[in-house]
Amino acid sequence: LPLTPDATTKDGGRLGNISGFATQAEIILNTPGAADLVGATPMDRPEWTAVDPETGSVYVTLTNNTDRDNEDGDSDTDTNVANPREDNEYGHIIRWNEGADPSQFTWEFFLFGSFASESALVNLSGLNEANEFGSPDGLAFDDRGLLWIQTDGGANDNTNDQMLAIIPSELNSTEDMLAVNADNQDQLKRFFVGPNGCEVTGLAFTPDHQSFFLNMQHPSNWPAAGTIDATDASGANRARSSTVVIMKDGGGEVGV
């Protein structure tokens, strides 16, 4: 759907005739509002996007949404084709490919977050205890085609926020099945788990892939309640917001 002043709104009018959308500059300043007016698909809190260097597919994380209301005001019942779970507390990842014409594309679900213990109606990707997660947020490919997925809070009661890895271009999936499913679980791997209450976010690599830099935001036990001490009662250092670097023992590429 083109977002221009001449675009047709859902009620058949002209977008540029609506106050606040008369010019392209105004539309750019309120892109979500313009998209709503022309009938774009509402999404469950899109966060990061990343492009697969092997295939050109574009990925976006939809971190979660437990506050979706339909036009009647009933919470958690308004789904759409791209957001099929009524109470999407775990979030999911969608990918798409551009068509020959710039206005065309195809899309599909790539991965649904969930606890392993949830029913098949929620755990649509068939996750297990080794890779269950919720609230996908940070998303980045390295130039080897590895996709790194970082999580941010939400329903992550079973595990702290984390980073997982998968190589989408090497998935052994079956046609007409979700890209990540119960048959290829061994290819989605938990790589890193952060401290209590933190968000794992931000990712950078050295060109040789031997050092990975991650941010640990707002761990819940820093600072301690009622004190400014950097240590707990036993004298151990408390976790704090920081950037950490991950390297392989003995050197070599991280993730292989």
Rank of each mutant, 00 (worst) to 15 (best):
T9C: 08
D11W: 14
G13I: 10
L15Q: 04
S19F: 08
G20R: 05
E26T: 08
T31G: 01
A34T: 00
T41G: 06
M43S: 05
D44Y: 05
P46C: 06
V51K: 07
P53K: 02
Y59C: 06
T63D: 08
N65L: 01
D67H: 14
N70G: 13
G73H: 05
A82R: 14
P84D: 05
N88M: 08
E89L: 10
Y90A: 15
G91R: 00
N97M: 09
G99D: 05
A100D: 15
D101N: 13
D101E: 12
Q104W: 03
T106N: 13
W107G: 11
E108Q: 14
G113S: 03
A116Y: 14
A116P: 06
L127E: 01
L127F: 03
N128S: 11
N128E: 09
F133I: 05
F133M: 07
F133L: 05
S135N: 11
D143C: 01
W148R: 00
T151Q: 01
T151A: 01
G154C: 03
T159S: 12
N172Y: 07
T174M: 08
L178F: 15
L188K: 03
K189L: 13
R190C: 09
N196C: 14
E199W: 06
G202H: 08
F205D: 04
T206E: 11
N215H: 11
H218C: 08
S220F: 08
D232W: 01
S234I: 04
N237R: 12
V244G: 06
